Structures are given as C-alpha cells and as structure tokens.
Amino acid sequence: MKALINFVKYLIPFSIALILAQYLIVSNVFSNTSFFYSTWSIYAFHIIVTLFSYSFLLFVNHNFPENTGFAFMGISLIKMLAAVVFLIPLLRSEMVSKIGDVAIFFIPYFLYLFFETFFAIRLINKK
C-alpha cells in the first residue's frame, strides 16, 4: 500500500502538469480546431489505466517477484488494446482528419508509459 501511495504522490503532480499544458496548448494554439475527445476525458483514461496497471504490477511484485517484468510487458499490451478500444469511436467517426485527435491522445499515452516504466524499473530493481 505504501508503494502505491508513493506512486500516486508522483502521479498527481505529473498529471496536473500535463493536463494544464495540454489544455493551454489546445485552447490557445488550436482554438479553431474541434477535437473529438476533450482533454479531461483523455487524461481520465490515462490516469485510471495507469493506476490500474501499476496496482497490478505491485500485486505481481508482492506475490511473484520474479515475474514482475513479464507482468509489465503484459499490462503494456493490455494498455495498448484499451487505447485502441478507447479510440474506436474516433476512428469510426465522420471526421475528415483524425491526425490531431490521435496526436493529442498518444503524446500523453507515451509520457504516461515512460512514467510507469520508470516506476516499474525501480520496482524490479528493488531487490
């Protein structure tokens, strides 16, 4: 539980900084562009999936510490599948150009993946 609380202590400021940066960029630089997903819905998805996946990694590390790396690879695959499922409404929409929407989703996706990878490496190397 302590490891999850420590993770959340870093996740919250990281998320707030990213949300504010993307919100300011989208509202000021791309003010004339209409996006399919709001900034809030994108970050709600990323935060929930990241919390779930790190909680699962902590569970695996506690019960099967030798399999934590494999669990991280598996949960990364599941996160990618969840991202595709999240983007299905966008992909099926009638929007002409979907490049901007995909970019404002996958830029934070990779930042959260890097963030989670950093903590997963710390978790694996804690032996």
Rank of each mutant, 00 (worst) to 15 (best):
I88M: 13
S55C: 05
L58W: 05
A21Y: 10
L57G: 00
Y10A: 10
H62S: 09
S31Q: 13
L81D: 05
T50Q: 04
S55W: 08
I12P: 10
P13R: 02
V8M: 11
I12L: 15
I42D: 09
I75S: 08
L20V: 13
F119K: 03
Y109E: 07
I42T: 13
I107D: 05
L58K: 05
E66F: 00
I124W: 04
I12A: 15
F70L: 11
A44K: 13
L111N: 02
F114H: 01
L81T: 09
I48S: 12
Y10F: 13
S53M: 03
P13W: 08
S31D: 13
I124P: 01
L51M: 15
I12C: 10
S76E: 05
V85E: 07
F56D: 01
F119R: 03
L87C: 15
I78V: 14
I78W: 08
A103F: 10
V26A: 11
Y37W: 15
F56L: 07
V84H: 07
F72H: 01
S34P: 06
P13K: 01
S27P: 02
A3Y: 11
Y37N: 12
Y23R: 14
A21M: 13
L123Q: 02
W40V: 09
F114M: 09
G100L: 13
K126D: 00
S34V: 15
L58Q: 06
M73E: 04
F52M: 12
M95I: 14
L20R: 04
V102C: 05
R122A: 00
A21W: 12
N28I: 10
Q22K: 09
V29F: 14
L24Q: 12
A82K: 02
V96D: 08
H46W: 04
V96L: 14
Y112L: 01
V85S: 08
Y37G: 06
A82V: 12
F106N: 02
I104A: 05
E66L: 08
I104K: 11
S38D: 09
F7D: 04
L11S: 07
L20I: 15
L11W: 11
F118R: 06
T33P: 05
N6T: 12
A120Q: 00
F118A: 01
N61W: 03
S34Q: 12
V49D: 02
V85P: 00
G100I: 03
F35N: 08
Y54I: 04
I99F: 12
F86I: 14
I25H: 00
W40K: 10
F59A: 06
L81R: 03
T33W: 10
S76D: 00
F119Q: 00
T39S: 11
I88K: 14
